[in-house]
Nucleic acid binder design. Structure first.
Lengths: 337, 337
DNA sequence: TAGCGAACTGCAAACGTTTGCGGTGACGTT
DNA sequence: AACGTCACCGCAAACGTTTGCAGTTCGCTA
């Protein structure tokens, strides 16, 4: 007990039987007599025996650990994803190794090496903003490590993936604004080189088109940060553009816009309605509270993990890749009604 | 290459030399000829050999993994702690297994079992709110697993630990308010049964005492949530209490107070200064921006990990336990100047 | 030309488990 | 007395590494 943990060998020595018998007794193998089983279980209990997961992993040539590559944990969305991953993984008896890429490509490559060295059973990955070379991911696949992408997927790569229906969510956001009587709706868009940015803008455009509202390019501004949103809102006001709604690509952007409007004495939602995206901690504490889109991070994490476990435990994992598209919920709060 | 990863044996077979030679060549052992070394390294490179960390762990009877038990990852503070842990751990060649207790005792116990089974080299732990029985932690210690506590420590248990100096931070917050001319400072306090809540209140009281300002019990209200803070502020106003400053036990509380004040037309910081605690994502996006206390989560994580690694790698870890008390920084923003 | 280092390299055991296969008794059947 | 059957158990190998020790070649000295 002094140094290190008790092993099967320790139990065997103590009971003067072989390690194989102990091993079988522990899993109630029919070959072992009841008496022996009882003795083994009792001693195991007494000595607080914990099977050595490391030895097991080596034997099975695969660890009971799944790897997670995540851009940055310090975001409400990503940390909810991790919670979802953890819960499902632990229920299935798997551990989780988390690697942050910190949005850096180099780091992401290092992460894959680490996970490979740890012989993880599978990997969940959301690529960093920098990543545009996917060799490291192909490397995982070449080594038969099952891969599931969540949220930030790789367009070309065939793999299991779970994503949010950004287009649909944006469409619904815009519809909501239109339905509540808004006619001149601005969009603070995300970077158009990212799929997410394009999808969100497209959903916005589709909703306007369907409602017979013509697109005013002046009302579409690329602004995806708090500061940029403040400036963008300022510009709209200074240029005396008419607008009665703003759909911002994320919550921080929405809040930046709200602040500027309020500073200029514009009433929310009476004069201008504001809607954010990716419902986080912020939406409940603004004044007025912010209408936003719940991205269901927890659900995304748990679903991705289920898909991964399925592939890990499949005897034959040559079945076709699956793409799960999650519906994001529109949460209507004070800023738009 | 097809199934599984390339091993030392594969390299050995390919080069028609023994596994031991390959092993030594890979670590540039002087016994091995330059020619062999070169050949081995080249082949290893070509086949993308990654040492099997699992086998290594088994051999060394200790994995290169450290375990983290954390209450809830979905908090800015805790996720920054994790970032700090990760960075230091990975630089030292250690992996990190993260276990959330979700503030549940049962879960925390399960976590320790998992980590024990994984034969982690050491554990970083911040106990859950429910935990008041520490058998599982003693169990870790009995099995010679080094332990470092961060943030939420166990009062009785002798161990390395790193915590925030809540008392000092609160004292400084209050001093700051006094120094900027405030004389009637309210405190929205945390639960007094938690050490944190008591320390923060005590720091506040000390600063007032030192400044010769008498304590007005009516200005001390237990309110540690957004909603409670709104009600508390409302009450102060309705009861026509005189106050020109509020020190809230956390940022959400501060924001709740600010909203109520603003709704009642009270100017911040002109009429009332507001200060929060545990600087997170919120403080920068309020209007005015919120003065708060940076708890240095990242630093706490990295220091805790350094302490743990020190104990893990120490040949003789019988040296005395260490307690590191971090100074929290007061970040002065618009709400108090 | 035997002997001796030096310079390499391989053998084998060990880490903790699992598992196919082969014992070993006891007992019953011919 | 010989054999078969059962119930139970142990041997040994394997997973991928590391490492103390024991070779095996050399070339060189005496």
């Amino acid at each position: 007990m002094k140094s290190g943990l008790v092993t099967i060998k320790d139990l065997a020595r103590e009971l003067k039987i072989s390690a194989s018998t102990v091993s079988r007794a522990l899993k109630n193998h029919p070959d072992i007599s009841e008496a022996t089983k009882r003795a083994v279980h009792e001693l195991a209990e007494k000595l607080n025996y914990q099977p050595n997961a490391v030895a097991l992993s080596l034997k099975q040539r695969r660890s009971n650990t799944i790897g997670v590559i995540i851009p940055e944990i310090v975001h409400y969305f990503f940390s909810s994803v991790i919670s979802g991953i953890e819960d499902v993984a632990y229920d299935a008896g798997f551990n989780v190794i988390i690697c942050q890429s910190n949005e850096r490509y180099e780091r992401e490559v290092a992460n894959t090496k680490t996970l490979l060295a740890s012989r993880v059973a599978g990997v969940l990955v959301s690529i960093s903003k920098e990543t545009d070379d996917f060799k490291h991911l192909f490397n995982l696949r070449d080594n038969n490590v099952p891969l599931v992408f969540y949220d930030r997927i790789v367009p070309g790569l065939q793999a299991d993936q779970v994503i949010i229906d950004d287009f649909d969510a944006s469409y619904r956001v815009t519809r909501h604004l239109i339905d509540s009587g808004r006619k001149q709706i601005a969009h603070f868009a995300g970077p158009q080189k990212l799929l997410i940015g394009r999808n969100r803008k497209d959903g916005y455009i589709r909703a306007l088109n369907e409602a017979g509202i013509s697109i005013d390019e002046k009302l579409i501004i690329e602004a995806d940060t708090f500061e940029k949103a403040r400036l963008a809102a300022m510009r709209l006001i200074n240029e005396k553009r008419k607008f009665d709604g703003i759909f911002a690509v994320n919550d921080l952007t929405a809040i930046g816009a709200m602040q500027t409007l309020q500073k200029r004495g514009i009433k929310i939602p009476d004069e201008v309605a504001v809607v954010g995206f990716s419902d986080g901690r912020f939406s409940g504490i603004t004044d007025p509270t912010l209408t936003s889109v719940d991205q269901h991070g927890y659900e995304m994490g748990s679903i991705a993990t289920e898909m991964l476990l399925k592939r890990i435990t499949a005897k034959d994992n040559d079945y076709p890749f699956e793409t799960r598209i999650l519906n994001a919920n529109l949460i209507i709060r004070g800023s738009s009604v």
